[in-house]
Computed example of a mutant assay.
Amino acid sequence: MILNEIFAKIRRMDLYLAQDSNIIETDDIPRETRDPVWVLGRRYNAIQELDLIRRDVATRLWCTYRKGFVPLGRPQLTSDKGWGCMLRCGQMLLGQALLDLHLGRDWFWTPETRDPTYLKIVNRFEDSRKSPFSIHQIALMGDSEDKRVGEWFGPNTIAQVLKKLVKYDDWCSINIFVALDNCVVIEEIRKLCEKDDNTWVPLLLIIPLRLGLSEVNPIYIDRLKKSFEIPGTCGLIGGRPNQAHYFIGYVGDEALYLDPHTTQKCGSVGEKMSQNEIDMDSSYHQKFAARIHFERMDPSLAISFLCRTRTEFDELCTRLKLDICGGSQPLFEITDMNQMPWRKMPGLPKNEFIVPGHNMHDSEEDEFEFI
Rank of each mutant, 00 (worst) to 15 (best):
S227I: 01
F228C: 10
E229T: 03
I230T: 07
P231W: 04
P231V: 08
G232H: 10
G232R: 01
C234L: 04
G235H: 10
I237E: 00
I237P: 00
I237H: 01
G239N: 08
P241D: 14
N242T: 14
Q243N: 10
Q243D: 02
A244R: 08
Y246V: 05
F247K: 01
F247S: 12
I248M: 13
I248L: 14
I248F: 02
G249S: 07
Y250I: 07
Y250V: 06
Y250L: 09
V251L: 03
V251P: 11
G252I: 05
A255W: 02
L256Y: 03
L256V: 06
L258T: 07
L258H: 07
L258I: 12
D259N: 09
D259L: 00
D259I: 07
P260R: 08
P260Q: 08
H261G: 01
T262M: 14
T263N: 07
Q264P: 07
K265H: 15
K265I: 14
K265N: 15
C266Y: 07
C266V: 14
C266T: 15
G267N: 07
G267C: 05
S268L: 15
G270F: 05
G270N: 12
K272L: 08
M273F: 05
M273K: 15
N276L: 14
E277K: 03
D279F: 13
D281K: 04
D281R: 03
D281N: 15
S282M: 13
S283C: 15
H285M: 10
H285K: 05
Q286G: 10
Q286C: 14
Q286N: 12
K287W: 13
A289N: 00
A290R: 12
A290I: 06
R291W: 04
H293V: 00
F294T: 04
D298E: 09
P299W: 00
L301K: 07
A302S: 13
I303W: 04
I303H: 11
S304F: 09
F305W: 06
L306Q: 11
L306K: 03
T309E: 05
T309L: 08
T309G: 06
R310D: 08
R310F: 07
T311F: 06
T311W: 02
E315P: 11
L316F: 11
C317H: 10
T318F: 11
T318V: 08
R319H: 00
K321M: 11
L322F: 01
D323W: 02
I324S: 06
C325E: 10
G326C: 09
G326P: 03
G326S: 15
G327N: 09
G327K: 15
Q329V: 12
P330F: 03
L331W: 08
F332P: 00
T335K: 14
D336L: 13
D336R: 13
D336M: 14
M337N: 14
M337L: 15
Q339V: 11
Q339R: 02
P341H: 09
W342Y: 12
W342H: 05
R343W: 04
K344T: 01
G347L: 10
P349H: 11
P349N: 09
P349W: 01
